[in-house]
Amino acid sequence: MVTPRAHATRSPLQLAALIVGIVFLLVGILGFIPGITANTGDLELAGPGSDAMLLGIFEVSILHNVVHLLFGVAGIALSRTWAGARNFLIGGGIVYLLLFLYGLLVPHGSAANFVPFNSADNWLHLVLGLGMVALGALLGRSRGRTRSVL
């Protein structure tokens, strides 16, 4: 007789990747919501001309929000396996560290700032990159499992 599992089990690594993916998905959605994002009428497809500000702090564009949505979906999907979760956290963390460097090197008002970024975005990218790499490296040391309701 086949019985369904009462609870899905996830390793702490997989749970971390799932949570990070959900947060990115929510941030991508919130970037389109007036009131949470200021100046949504000035939301542009891409580039430094978008004056929309998520939480009044982080400069966003349609492309920026879509990247967050896709990153969130990737995190949720990759959290299904231990290796996928580790790759998402470490690989995604490296991407965010590279975005931090890109944000430091590219003038905020230039056409090369296509996502767009501002200083708050740059510092957030540094913290996200370091945090994701740390989670992937530290939680990726063992393949222990834990019960999760997520």
Rank of each mutant, 00 (worst) to 15 (best):
Y102Q: 11
G75F: 04
L104V: 13
V27L: 15
G72Q: 03
G28W: 10
L78F: 04
R141L: 01
I62A: 14
T40V: 14
W123Y: 15
T146V: 14
T40W: 04
A38I: 12
L124C: 13
A46K: 14
F100C: 10
I90V: 11
N122Y: 01
L25S: 10
G93C: 12
V127D: 01
T37K: 08
M132G: 12
L69H: 02
H125R: 07
I33L: 12
L104I: 12
V106I: 08
L104Y: 09
I57V: 15
R5E: 14
L139T: 07
T40P: 04
I76Y: 00
Q14P: 04
V73M: 02
A8F: 14
L124D: 09
R147F: 13
G49A: 14
G109Q: 13
I90E: 00
V23I: 13
V2Y: 13
R143L: 09
V133G: 00
I94K: 05
V95M: 06
V95E: 07
I29S: 00
L105F: 15
V60D: 01
Q14T: 08
A46D: 10
R5A: 13
L139Y: 00
G91K: 05
G131N: 11
S148L: 05
G103A: 04
S119N: 15
L98I: 15
R80M: 12
W123D: 09
A112M: 10
G136D: 00
M1N: 11
T3W: 02
A134G: 01
L139F: 06
A111D: 13
A8T: 14
R86Y: 07
A16Q: 00
G109F: 11
S110L: 12
A17M: 00
G103Y: 08
L25W: 10
R86G: 06
I62M: 15
L99W: 05
F32P: 07
L43H: 00
L26M: 13
L43A: 05
A46Q: 12
V20E: 05
I33T: 10
V66S: 05
S142G: 08
L69M: 06
G92V: 01
A83W: 11
L45S: 11
L98K: 12
L98E: 10
I36W: 02
V115N: 12
H68A: 04
L45N: 12
